[in-house]
Design a protein around this nucleic acid. Structure first.
Lengths: 231, 231
DNA sequence: GCTGTAAAGTAAACACCGTTTACATACGCT
DNA sequence: AGCGTATGTAAACGGTGTTTACTTTACAGC
């Protein structure tokens, strides 16, 4: 668990470093900004990281880009369109976090252990990201995005979004015989609900005072519960 | 399941009826409103019911109460204080919905069946309310309220809030021998996470297009998963 | 190389929102 | 009756998203 935490911490620091480049508002010389759309997304992403979805303010983004407020409307139809782009970026980072956890294990000679480890990796990667980047996590699920869409912006290096990564883990469990056929159908939703619920109860729910280590310990138990309860 | 749906539907209709009385903005004759605080809460509750927590607008509440905007500040320190009161009312309604489900069963001669039915009642009552009153449900959990507090405003006739009702169901499972001692600790959080996660994935997450009947069917499976997975 | 067009910026305004300050009213208590 | 205080109003401030009209620039084609 500590390893999980550390790897995620590394990502966080790296991300903060890359952010600093754009936080500095240098007065531009050219009339055209050159890359305003990306600048707005970057600013919005940082705002989401710090304060969640409600904190991504369109005018603030234009301010940080050194541009007049309405300039944003040349690149986004509305504030919610900007938020869409930001959310997509957040989902992509979540997918990367899950992948990082999954990459720690290879098939090996025990398929059932591999299946269990895969499921655990998805669940704990999900929860770990939620604990490390609460703002981005909340932004990622602030508003309904389509689910089964293979939107490449939402995917990490494997080309899979978080839902598809979960499906992959469940497939491994099924192939190894841990999961019967009828129990496999829709198992994504059951498993996903558990970790998502725990994350939100902690991040913006009544469990907000719970220390992250306790949350992660509960996460371990919840993954086991899912593994046993799915049948 | 149909019975569940119908009973909740009845509540909904009753609630809408009581609302209409206050929706009509009659020009008052007296300088004093007489019951402005409650009028603001009622207006806010209706806004939350229709549009969720973000839709409870302070100025709109004063408008519906036929009063100037700043009059609200004689009764609430801020918009968020008004939202607090509204959220408390939403939690209370949720507790009532859960109780209604629990009251359908009596101890009987099979304690294990009673324990299972109690857990199912809590889970399905929770989910049913979320499906029937999405706005109020989202408002209820929009911002961290304290959890273990026996705030009487959040409780229904039994005097228990949703979390405590869940604890009661789990106690019954433990007493009947369905749940071992070590598995009982913190089981609230594991069980709660599952239904809460499913509700939020559907209400404001990627599963928003899922039909309510499918959600409730998943709910049945998720309760079984919890019952089997807790140990 | 000039020029016309369309893309990408600005300026100013509008309608909202929450909130504050100063002032007005009327209720209830002595 | 009078007075204090609770409860209302009026007007204003800064913030937000958004629209309309105008200006500047980059670039493509003759």
């Amino acid at each position: 668990m500590d390893a999980v935490h550390n790897s995620l911490l590394r990502d966080t620091l790296f991300f903060e470093e890359t952010m600093k480049k754009t936080v500095a508002i240098e007065k531009r010389k050219t009339f055209r900004h050159g890359d305003l759309r990306n600048a707005l997304i970057t600013a919005g992403l940082e705002m989401a990281r710090v304060g969640g979805p409600d904190a991504v303010i369109l005018r603030q983004a234009t301010r940080e880009a050194g541009v007049s407020p309405n300039a944003a409307y040349r690149h986004f139809a509305s504030q919610s369109a900007l938020l869409d782009a930001v959310r997509s970026a957040c989902l992509s980072q979540l997918a990367t976090a899950i992948e990082d956890e999954m990459k720690k294990f290879r098939p090996g000679r025990d398929p059932q252990a591999f299946g269990r480890k895969s499921l655990r990796a998805v669940g704990m990667g999900y929860l770990g990201f939620a604990m490390r980047e609460p703002g981005m996590f909340r932004a990622a699920f602030s508003v309904p995005p389509p689910i089964h869409s293979p939107d490449p912006a939402n995917t990490a290096s494997m080309g899979l979004n978080p839902f598809q990564l979960l499906s992959l883990a469940l497939d491994r469990m099924q192939e190894s015989g841990l999961l019967a056929g009828k129990g496999r159908e829709g198992a994504e939703y059951l498993a996903w609900s558990t970790v998502h619920g725990l994350a939100l109860l902690v991040l913006e729910g009544p469990l907000h005072a719970m220390p992250p280590q306790v949350v992660l310990a509960l996460g371990e138990r919840i993954v086991v519960m899912v593994e046993r309860g799915l049948r």
